[in-house]
Design a protein around this nucleic acid. Structure first.
Lengths: 117, 117
DNA sequence: TCATATACCGAAAAATTTTTCCATACCCTT
DNA sequence: AAGGGTATGGAAAAATTTTTCGGTATATGA
């Protein structure tokens, strides 16, 4: 995530650290989908976020797991089956996701008028 | 911001809307700097965020103004002088910035151990 | 047998963001 | 007149993210 980039994230800045974990296009949405705690299979997540390219969901799920916000269970079955669920660390981010969701709902009209079409 | 991109931001998704306003590298930090309400000159902002390329601060300040989160006052003087201050809309985002700041402080140790060096 | 579904991943193209460098224009101080 | 500070912006390179396309492998159902 952070230190394998050419220009590494400044982990000493709390704001940049938190942002770096969720700023990719679909990460906050993935966490929102997983919020209930019920594990979801990747195909389900894809269905819930149909506008996201499947490949990018794969990549971002992998990064969420790497960062410890989400955990993965692989069932040794065929055809393959796996499940993702939110971890306690991910759950601790949900209030932030909530407040962004709420802010977006409350102020959506401003930006629809401003930018739509 | 949103609809002048080839792949426009989905303004109907409240989460993506909110994220799109603050996800650029330094926007949340700029809002944090302006939080007190006291106007700041661009040169001051640059000094407070020395790791940011000045050019990118200019660009992101401009976008923050365009999105209505920050306002700009230009004084018709020479040498040129201008000031940026946070708007009520920007202030309404501060609780989100706060919670990200707090989360980052509380969980920094995890990621320092994990990614530093 | 053929299509579909499952999960995943490599590679390249495209889009976007960030960085870097340079330029404008004017003032003040040395 | 030279150097430094002010605010700003063009342009290209570099870095990063996202998209798109294709491939692996195996099982099930038509």
């Amino acid at each position: 995530m952070a230190y394998e980039k050419k220009i590494p994230v400044d982990l000493d800045c709390p704001l940049r650290l938190t942002m770096s974990l969720i700023e990719s296009k679909w990460k906050s949405c993935i966490l929102d989908e997983l919020r209930s705690g019920t594990p979801m299979r990747p195909s389900e997540i894809h269905k819930c976020l149909p506008e996201a390219a499947p490949r990018v969901l794969d990549i971002q799920l992998k990064e969420l797991v790497e960062d410890g916000l989400v955990a993965k269970t692989i069932f040794p079955e065929l055809p393959p089956r796996s499940e993702y669920h939110i971890t306690p660390l991910g759950i601790s981010l949900l209030p932030i996701i909530d407040s962004m969701l709420k802010w977006g709902e409350e102020h959506m009209d401003i930006f629809e008028k401003k930018y739509k079409r």
